[in-house]
Design a protein around this nucleic acid. Structure first.
Length: 203
DNA sequence: TGTCCGATTGGT
DNA sequence: CCAATCGGACAG
């Protein structure tokens, strides 16, 4: 069952980022086979006040335009000349909030995932935002895709109790000054598929 | 159009 | 720790 529009249009992006944990990200390939993973790590970005956000200070360009769309839209961009990053847009139109999905635990289409990530250990298949995009076949063609459509979506997964959720600072945003230390990254405690560089945490 | 740099990763 | 690698943002 796909998560409904109201899940995404809520105004508190931190709450949505936390609630995403345990749900299942699904990408059907063109044969109709499903590749899917349970979301185990997320990061909230709250433009325009959040200096770490691409939409900081109201920045609105060809790339960031997606973030201004309706909650429940995919925001996929390309970084470091080689990696894609999959994000979920939240809130209502014109409020550029988004959540970076940093790691999933593979649960469907393992054969396809292993082929795309040949030579890697099991815990390295989808344990990072760039890795999971390779594993699941996500690229910029999915930018602006509606998560209530049929190209990529998130459906009800497993239930995760509040006690299993840990939070800590976001990763790779050293340029964000005072926003660096905000504990806006959420992950499932002890899950083997969370990204490496998981530094200090607090709950 | 030129320069700087990135919401990462894999190898040293 | 560091290089890879190229598109985006912005200055000029």
């Amino acid at each position: 069952m796909k998560l409904p529009r109201e899940f995404y249009t809520r105004s508190d992006v931190l709450e949505v980022a936390r609630d995403l944990l345990g749900n299942k990200l699904v990408v059907p390939n063109r044969n109709g086979a499903r590749v899917a993973g349970i979301i185990v790590e997320t990061e909230a970005y709250r433009g325009p006040e959040d200096k770490a956000s691409h939409a900081y200070n109201g920045r609105r360009t060809r790339r960031t335009e997606t973030m201004y769309g309706l909650g429940g839209t995919a925001y996929v961009y390309f970084v470091y000349g080689m990696y894609h990053q999959f994000n979920v847009v939240t809130n209502v139109e014109d409020v550029p909030h988004a959540i970076l999905v940093r790691a999933v635990e593979p649960v469907e289409g393992l054969d396809i995932i292993r082929r795309r990530r040949r030579g890697r250990f099991e815990h390295e298949l989808t344990s990072g935002p760039g890795r999971l995009c390779v594993a699941m076949g996500i690229d910029r063609k999915l930018d602006k895709a509606d998560l209530l459509g049929d190209r990529v979506w998130i459906e009800e997964g497993v239930s995760v109790s509040r006690r299993q959720i840990v939070r800590g600072p976001r990763i790779g945003i050293d340029y964000a000054e005072e926003w660096v230390k905000k504990a806006w990254r959420f992950w499932i405690r002890d899950n083997p598929c969370v990204s490496r560089r998981s530094g200090r945490s607090f709950d």
